[in-house]
Design a protein around this nucleic acid. Sequence first.
DNA 1: ATTGACGGCGTAAACGATTAAGTAAATTCA
DNA 2: TGAATTTACTTAATCGTTTACGCCGTCAAT
Lengths: 339, 339
Amino acid sequence: MVTLKDISNKCGVSRATVSKALNGQSDIGEETAKHIREVAKSMGYLPNATARALKLGRSHNIGVLFVDQTASGLKHEYFSAILNSLKDEAEHLGYDITFISKNLGSFEMDYYEHAKYRNCDGVVIASVDFKDPDVIRLAQSEIPTVTLDYVFDSRTSILSDNIAAMRDIVNFVYEKGHRRIAIIHGEDTSVTQKRLASFQKICSEHSIVVPEAYVKTAVYHDPKSSALATRELLALAERPTCILYPDDFSFIGGMNELERQGVSIPRDMSVVGFDGILLSQVLRPRLTTYRQDAETMGREAAARLVEAIEQPKLFIPQQIVVSGLLLEGDTVAHIEAQK
Amino acid sequence: MVTLKDISNKCGVSRATVSKALNGQSDIGEETAKHIREVAKSMGYLPNATARALKLGRSHNIGVLFVDQTASGLKHEYFSAILNSLKDEAEHLGYDITFISKNLGSFEMDYYEHAKYRNCDGVVIASVDFKDPDVIRLAQSEIPTVTLDYVFDSRTSILSDNIAAMRDIVNFVYEKGHRRIAIIHGEDTSVTQKRLASFQKICSEHSIVVPEAYVKTAVYHDPKSSALATRELLALAERPTCILYPDDFSFIGGMNELERQGVSIPRDMSVVGFDGILLSQVLRPRLTTYRQDAETMGREAAARLVEAIEQPKLFIPQQIVVSGLLLEGDTVAHIEAQK
DNA sequence: ATTGACGGCGTAAACGATTAAGTAAATTCA
DNA sequence: TGAATTTACTTAATCGTTTACGCCGTCAAT
């Protein structure tokens, strides 16, 4: 391994001079600096991130908390996409990313300790149980953090705009003439709450009364539970004309149930998904769904975190709301508006 | 930050003693060691991975090369699943995972340099262009590496068993009576070559003559190109009775085309996918497909790499073939065996 | 009583980099 | 010309750990 020392020997200057020359400090002569840079290159010198981190107290490393709870973590397209753009942006800004977990080998440590142990300059928290005391400890620590789809006090968070999403969806189906709109929602999380509240609000703005039976609970990304909810909706005396699903994957479960009962989409029943996963756009009929802008979310998360790291004084925690886009597929029929 | 020094001050012993006590070295008295451990705990001491890495030349950090070429990298379920189990196993063995890329910030470096810069103890190479000179440089460097689905000379690789997979698939459809079997394959990669060779071999073992027109080239994970290939197959004077797709996603393209032409699955046409993504198992009819054992692959990759890192003397490069499982769905009809 | 072995701990150097402070020479200014 | 400033470097400390080696005292063996 080529070190500063090797270069300084070869050049006949001190290590300090080499360091400064390579870092472009101003107090090194033009000539010397150039020569040093050339020698460094010819010797194949690479800075040692570890040594640098130790000395500077900055690792240029961002921790990422992604927990694969019920297979909806990394495998989920939404989070994969976020992670991907997060990674690209972080790298662009000169940071690497490392996964943070509990229990590294035989060491027992919580997230905060792990992040400290690795000298992470900051951490992005996503796709975890935000009620977990260990998560809370990390979020309240002195380490800069950015959360995704969850707000911690005086912390920056990146939020997909679930409120606008639901507004757009309801408005869209309303325009198509639907008045009997059912919604199947996921478990009780802050995201779910926002969507439901927005759903109710927009419905009431349109003077639509939503019967209790039209609001069904299911589990995110679980086709079975959404199939069940769908069955219950179909069993109602007054069927809805349109069903909103908590995500595209859940929609598949509903789709199967509808097909099983010979209910044609969108002729007999209109449906809307959520997420806009690749699949939903290649199925026929193409699913009408809401695509969250995962690319922007990942990018923003990285950018804001790096800001918090590099300009702690200037930094102001904020909630960044990223809006998505309604993908108009072919699963919402235009119908005669009933009362 | 609590350091060894703080503990040594409080305990009235030297830093060396503290270090040894915490690492369980034998030359420290029972009493002293116990006391030191207690004080360390009470002060909330955490070892500093950076300092340790610098001193020991081992970072306990594994680099991962995942390139999201044409959105088939991280977003692809197969690789997400591998990454997930890779991460779990690595953490279990005491290693963290860091993504490796070209160009970190303004630094221009190739993969090898990046891995060196971060002091990665080893690197897992997956989902990249294996012909890329930068990838080759890394794979031929002194850094221990493990490749996924590709073999480099005298390196360990983890391979999904494409040969057995294709054998199982062909045998399965043969048993069901199919003799006119078409295959749509992806771009020319080592994986594709293995699958095709295996396909031809098993067919000839069954004395099946495969017309050239039954072998179609498409692009992995591209429903459009597979839809096109499907259309061509349907246009043949003598249609196949069964189509094998390069992956489940491509199958969707084919499915749309079949539906468009009123060809019912599996009544009029049998189909087989590849990968066994979640989706394929919730669709109705359930897709007959081959699930690669991504969990095992990720786990093996981590385990073998750590072996190579920790026992370089004992270590022997090997190719580990991981077999998957044919998921028998409902898309292959039992038909009367033709000539 | 002398020797040797050993347990228990400290000393100090080292890993590779950065940087405050210092120094010597060259340059500027009065 | 002498003082002050600037330029171009060097010295040495430091980040937090680990570890080869040394030292001292105790105890058993001779």
